[in-house]
Nucleic acid binder design. Structure first.
Length: 359
DNA sequence: AAAGCGTGGAA
DNA sequence: TTTCCAAGCTT
């Protein structure tokens, strides 16, 4: 009977969590309300997919305004597929992980062209789309189509590690935690269940100071019994971030136009607008050679732009110049003042602009 | 398979 | 100020 007991409790745990979810589900722009759900109304797969892409490694609070803006401007996947690349990248500016925006467009165009604008409902078909990995494929299949797929995001990893008091550090523990999650996924209301586990992790079973007293799974939780919940999941130690240095050139033409360039498709801030500049080098090296994009009288600002990326800190020296009308740049192109919106820039480049703009 | 890839809020 | 972290995917 060593196997029967833990297996038999799965339906009860799922039912208890769904009951909790029915009472505590948070309203979100991409969710269908309880009343509509009771009538069998499924959420729009396009909105589910869009929200899931935006939510990758990104907080709900950060996503909300972007989700509203995207769905207002591009109400269907076919609308998005027809959008200009630069418009989508500009609309994504500030949200981060810009490969998501590039893949978002690729995916929208794939759905529009090869699926006639209809999102596939199977995990495997979804998985083949650009920017859709195991988590997102399961999430869209479960939430939009109510298929019994198991979602495993950071929340679920944490909840499962605690429920089973699993001390193996991530990412090695991932297969174990995935299997635990799969064993709990119910055949009924899998879409609600998927969102319920993630909501539990986001609001009760939080990384720090978990609210175990409010948890519907408390009496079944091995980490609660052992007192180890706050220290789980274990994670591999992080590496220290090095600091890099570089130079950015902010040229303003006398008519107010700014000299910008679109960065290469791949790599950091790929496909985004940015100020021309040098590569960024590790701090022990001297500042790179001066390489201005246009002949002008360049002045170095006293303040650097500081920014931290996922794996390094950056200190960017800013050089500014006011250039006459009849002079051609060797890099980038001038964007007329009426067309230039600082909000279209990724955050690093916007920080640089805020320091360099005339005041 | 390990590393690359953003950002802002919380502690 | 620094660290940690949030509904991961790609190469």
């Amino acid at each position: 009977m060593t196997d029967a007991a833990p297996t038999a409790r799965a339906p009860r745990l799922a039912a208890e969590l769904l009951d909790w979810y029915d009472r505590h589900a948070r309203a979100m722009p991409w969710r269908t309300g309880p009343a509509a759900r009771a009538d069998g109304v499924r959420p729009d797969p396009y909105r589910v997919w869009l929200s899931e892409i935006m939510l990758q490694q990104t907080t709900v609070a950060a996503v909300k305004p972007y989700f509203e803006a995207f769905t207002a401007r591009w109400p269907t996947v076919s609308d998005l597929a027809a959008a200009a690349d630069a418009d989508v990248m500009a609309a994504w500016a500030g949200l981060g992980y810009y490969a998501r925006a590039r893949n978002l467009l690729k995916c929208a165009r794939a759905v529009a062209e090869t699926h006639e604008g209809i999102f596939p409902d199977s995990h495997d078909a979804l998985l083949s789309l650009p920017g859709v990995g195991p988590y997102t494929a399961a999430a869209v299949s479960a939430i939009a189509f109510d298929r019994p797929e198991t979602v495993v995001d950071g929340n679920v990893e944490r909840v499962m590690a605690r429920l089973h008091d699993e001390h193996t550090p991530l990412p090695a523990a991932k297969p174990i935690l995935t299997e635990h999650a799969r064993a709990l996924t119910p055949p009924e209301r899998p879409g609600d269940y998927a969102q319920a586990v993630m909501d539990l992790g986001a609001t009760i079973c939080t990384p720090r100071n978990p609210a175990c007293g409010l948890c519907p799974w408390r009496t079944d939780c091995a980490a609660w019994a052992a007192g180890t919940a706050p220290e789980l999941p274990k994670k591999a130690p992080k590496k220290v971030k090095p600091t890099r240095h570089g130079i950015a050139y902010l040229a303003r033409r006398v008519d107010g136009a700014w000299l910008l360039e679109t960065r290469p498709e791949t790599g950091l801030l790929g496909g985004m607008l940015g100020w021309p500049g040098t590569d960024w080098f590790s701090s022990d090296a001297a500042l790179p050679d001066d390489a201005p994009p246009i002949r002008a009288e360049w002045r170095t600002l006293s303040e650097e732009a500081r920014h931290t990326f996922t794996h390094f800190h950056l200190r960017l020296t800013l050089r500014v110049a006011l250039v006459p009308m009849d002079r051609a740049p060797c890099r980038g192109e001038f964007i007329p003042a009426p067309e230039f919106r600082p909000a279209d820039l990724p955050t690093l480049m916007r920080k640089a602009f805020d320091l360099a703009r005339p005041r």
